[in-house]
Design a protein around this nucleic acid. Structure first.
Lengths: 236, 236
DNA sequence: CCGCTGCCTTGATAACCATCAAGTGGTGCA
DNA sequence: TGCACCACTTGATGGTTATCAAGGCAGCGG
């Protein structure tokens, strides 16, 4: 039983890294039947801040940004979610409206699972809940980490850190074998992620460029001296 | 069946606000038998960063500080845990060593529950896991919030915010009916919590004092103009 | 009583960074 | 082609805050 887009839970590349890895075949079959896999374009949204939580989303491929509106109405990027991540389960579990907007940042394949279905699965399979729990504990630890980082390190360090994280996720080698990266984020969003402003990010970029560590052209990055970049990361 | 110190789960004031509120009488009886309630003095530790996780701790009364060592070996206060909070469950769930130190900040009554016992309870009662999950989702949301706060507000705002939070927890009225507060934290720890330095905290204190909003004498605080203090809090 | 130690305060300085403002460059559209 | 719009860059400035350094003030043991 395959989803409309040829996306079956059984063949899902990311399943084994997600909450669903402990699910039985019967449960996966059920999931396959009720889920709604969709290909979504960058710029669209899975849900908006304030929306009722109708279910959860499982990201098969692509990239999703979690945004929040501040008092002034500006939307601030809080974090990124990649393939294998389940999105929106917090609101589902708390039974509240979504506290953030989930925006597609790169063309993505997403599976939607309705609230009732998840509820049923959770009741049937206690392990599923535990897996969500572990996942969330990790998320929380990451936030703790980032909080710590923001306090203790300069914008430059945080920027380099993000750059290397993005390289690990989206980097590749060009035809000359040099490490390159296509940033999936605007300067504004980079700034939000590291707790800074677009101007300061831009200045950091110029500096890193002047030092010959990397070359930036729009969202294309050529990592000239990746060893030195790594070396300059804050001690993890 | 009462614990050695007269601390029974049945009579626990905080039980209804914790993970354990969904536990059956039988389970509570079991807990009462196996848990190890202890009164601990300020300055002692529940566990240290790097320790094997032997079980989880339930704080009945008092205050616990979660600390982490940075690269330089300084210990940084990350957050506070109050009555009703379960401590150390993250490492338990992830099966890792403790990533932080839990230090008693005020004389506290703490119940210890061994790993095996928790494991058994979790397997028996799926709801318990869900409750932990909800709790953790809230924790993560709080970190998200604080991260956001640290980025967007000045040290002064963050300090006032902490001051009012502490007042809600530990404040009282003196014989003249004035709101007073006994800070359970050193300047150093206050600084860490709001992502600043002792010096800057001290300056903030002086400023607030000059403005006639509050008077500080060591760790004793007299909140002279509590309304104005509230008014100056960042919009929640 | 003295000196010691740890915590807190105060002062001077400079770095870092946000903010405001103006300019650049690319892309789409008429 | 030219215009407009957008994201990005660069410049100038000032504010906030970290850092270094010195002094005050309690508690403690001798």
């Amino acid at each position: 039983m395959t989803g409309k887009l040829g996306v079956s839970c059984f063949g899902c590349q990311t399943r084994h890294t997600t909450e669903w890895c402990a699910s039985s075949d019967a449960e996966l079959t059920l999931l396959d039947q009720v889920k709604a896999p969709k290909i979504m374009e960058a710029g669209t949204a899975l849900f908006h801040q304030g929306d009722e939580c109708g279910g959860i989303y499982c990201l098969n491929s692509g990239l999703v940004g979690i945004r929040r509106l501040d008092a002034a109405g500006n939307s601030t990027l809080l974090r990124l979610a990649g393939p294998g991540e389940t999105i929106g389960y917090q609101s589902f579990l708390l039974g509240t409206a979504h506290r953030a907007t989930a925006e597609i940042m790169m063309p993505s394949t997403v599976c939607f699972i309705r609230r009732q279905t998840v509820r049923g699965l959770l009741e049937q399979n206690p392990n599923l809940g535990l897996r969500f729990l572990r996942h969330n504990v990790k998320d929380a630890a990451e936030f703790e980490e980032r909080h710590f980082e923001t306090i203790s390190f300069t914008v430059r360090s945080r920027f380099l850190n993000l750059l290397m994280v993005l390289y690990e996720r989206f980097g590749s080698l060009n035809e000359d074998g040099e490490p390159v990266l296509d940033l999936p984020l605007s300067r504004q969003d980079i700034a939000a992620l590291i707790g800074s402003t677009p101007e300061t990010v831009s200045r950091s970029i110029s500096k890193v460029q002047d030092e010959g560590l990397a070359r930036f052209k729009g969202r294309k990055v050529l990592l000239q001296d990746i060893d030195e970049l790594m070396r300059q990361l804050p001690a993890s």
